[in-house]
Design a protein around this nucleic acid. Structure first.
Lengths: 248, 248
DNA sequence: TAACTCGGTTTCATTCAATGAAACTGAGAG
DNA sequence: CTCTCAGTTTCATTGAATGAAACCGAGTTA
């Protein structure tokens, strides 16, 4: 798209691309990877040997196929320290799920996307792992709007400008929506991202007042009507506020 | 120690070493890293630019310091699929904690080490994040013994041979211990790894009968006497078995 | 049993990409 | 205003990364 002016290291870029394969599928044969990333197999072989040596990938002895190594998990475990919002917020999320009986999710922004870092399926005691880690667009959905609306002024403008917005979204109208959300303190969405789904979302600020995440309640649109969501909003905002007080 | 005959990619090795810095401390200035890994700062600069481009690190705009990027978290989230033992076992662990009132941990083996992938502190509703992700030696502690004793024959022998065992451990005696553990189905340890601490541990097998993890209960040695641990062992084994049935 | 096929591995000459020295920038500190 | 220090950019040098090709070994076919 644009000129890459930052000087980078090609070999490392390639290695990282290989690692990123594992977001799509968590077991790869060497040649599969070579094909996917478009590199010669001897190159991939060397790369994988390097990654394996450092524990970033591991190979199944029997099938010769590669999976992610525990070093990656280890890194991620050290990522947040004692302040992992996905963990801190869990009890509060459980309570909210029990109270409202709907799916509860937690999103943070990463560039022009948002990532679901925690999720509790209605009634189910176990979080729906499959969906944790999902990357979603930042231009649709209640949580997206929260993550933009409550971002600090400069960042917000940057996002609105920089983003490659889908033509279908009217910027002026979107801005107005953000204004309104800023006043209300919560956002709703009805079938914005997914057919038949609706969601309410509220911002989580840490004690320093910085936007950290968006807490959202989602469910089928026929059950989560606008009225229903407005009714639930205060509980969600309260939960979000409560979580925030635990984040430094 | 020995000759590195595997051919690897130097640039990638260096980049991974930079990433691994973040297991020690999660905020680094560029020069700190350069010093730590022993590379020229312009090299580190280029590496970090590459890592940042792919989202593996991110820099705090204000302080110019680097942290891990969300890509790492994203990778780790996809690591286990729907079968993350750390998640699957959570409800069972909670129950065990409530029942026994002690700290519950979950370990898996990684080479010659074990990693704590889940932990619940007695009474506290929130897991003690700080300790999740900890790497511990594989030659002391109840869980270590479990992770060796119930490993399949060939792997077990390999571990016993290959390992750089501390001279203080008598191999013959250790072997006998493993035998006994194999028969009992659980292992105990008293002040093996940590002064004043004791632990009981039981193996978790998946439905295919493969050893996946070790579930352990730990506490102060004066409270967790050998008798007490023997008394608790059945409950732990039962919990471990129950978790195992949920792992494919 | 030989001839193929198809993953993975190793070798090696070529060359281009990674490197580090050095110069530069800009923000604080003295 | 100078000094220092962290980060950035430039650029010539060269050795490290590369990919073609050969190799290996297991499984499949004829």
């Amino acid at each position: 798209m644009s000129v890459e002016n930052k000087s980078t290291v090609r070999a490392v870029e390639r290695a990282l691309d290989i690692l990123l394969c594992f977001t799509m599928k968590n077991e790869w044969a060497m040649t599969e990877i070579a094909e996917k990333v478009g590199l010669h197999k001897s190159t991939v072989h060397r790369m994988l040997a390097t990654l394996e040596e450092r524990g970033f990938v591991q190979r199944d002895a029997a099938s010769d196929r590669y999976r992610m190594g525990l070093r990656i998990w280890e890194l991620s475990a050290n990522m947040w320290g004692a302040d992992d919002p996905a963990v801190i917020s869990l009890p509060e999320m459980e309570q909210l799920r029990d109270q409202l009986g709907e799916t509860i999710s937690l999103y943070i922004r990463d560039g022009n996307e948002r990532i679901r870092i925690q999720a509790l399926q209605s009634n189910q005691a176990v979080r729906r792992v499959a969906l944790i880690g999902a990357r979603l667009p930042l231009y649709v959905g209640a949580s997206s709007k929260i993550l933009i609306a409550f971002e600090e002024q400069s960042k917000r403008e940057e996002l609105l400008a920089d983003n490659t917005w889908p033509a279908s979204i009217d910027k002026i109208q979107f801005q107005e929506q953000l204004e309104e959300i800023g006043e209300l303190g919560y956002a709703t969405s009805i079938e914005e991202r997914e057919q038949g789904a609706a969601a309410v979302s509220a911002p989580i600020f840490n004690r320093a007042g910085r936007l950290i995440a968006a807490l959202s309640v989602s469910g089928p649109a026929n059950r989560l009507t606008l009225d229903k969501m407005r009714e639930q909003a205060p509980a969600i905002m309260e939960a979000a506020r409560h979580i925030g007080t635990m984040l430094k």
